[in-house]
């Protein structure tokens, strides 16, 4: 059943690893209602899990007293996801690097730092956005269009343009 107009779901989850699964389940329900394909729903679930995990670990230092806010806005054309954290680690990273798995395996690079890259590959648009004046902290936005005419799964040009504000913690 597709929505007739904007539908907004807002979640406030404790900043504690594991609670990202609540956002994951919620977005799956919304994405199913928008008739995304099964594979696209999986992409969205993974993307929101990674974004919430970053918000918990880096944006609020895994301090469960803090909250991560997830706002899902569904309309006719797209699913828009905004994730807000308190910005405990300061400004978000700027660059998103392709994971250097060879460097990790050889012990030259630390393990991890793959979350933002995975997100960028899975959604149509992703990146940190500027918060409103009265809103402190980081805001990370992802957009997934219902008709994939803006990006193909393997288009490096499209994926590179979708996250020009992002970075890899």
């Amino acid at each position: 059943m597709a929505p007739q107009s904007n539908r907004v779901v807002e979640l406030r989850i404790p900043s504690e690893l594991g609670y990202e699964k609540i956002a994951r389940e919620a977005v799956a329900t919304v994405a199913h209602r928008l008739n995304f394909t099964k594979e696209k729903v999986e992409d969205i679930k993974t993307a929101i899990s990674e974004a919430c995990t970053n918000a918990i670990r880096y944006g609020s230092g895994s301090d469960a007293r803090m909250k991560v806010v997830v706002i899902l806005t569904a309309d006719e054309d797209k699913l828009d996801i905004l994730i807000k954290d308190p910005g405990a680690s300061g400004a978000p990273p700027i660059d998103i690097d392709i994971p250097d798995i060879d460097g990790m395996v050889e012990g030259k690079r630390r393990l991890g730092g793959m979350g933002l890259y995975i997100i960028r590959e899975l959604v149509d648009e992703a990146g940190f956005v500027e918060a409103a004046d009265d809103d402190e902290g980081n805001q990370f936005r992802m957009v997934i269009y219902r008709v994939e005419d803006t990006k193909t799964e393997s288009s490096p040009e499209a994926s590179a343009s979708g996250a020009d504000n992002g970075g890899s913690p």
Binding site: K21, T53, M104, L111, G112
Partner: peptide, 16 residues
């Protein structure tokens, strides 16, 4: 089951 990038990092450690 759910696998995230932290889980993948664990597997990369095993690969090493």
């Amino acid at each position: 089951d759910y696998i995230n990038s932290a889980g993948i990092a664990i597997l990369i450690g095993v690969v090493t």
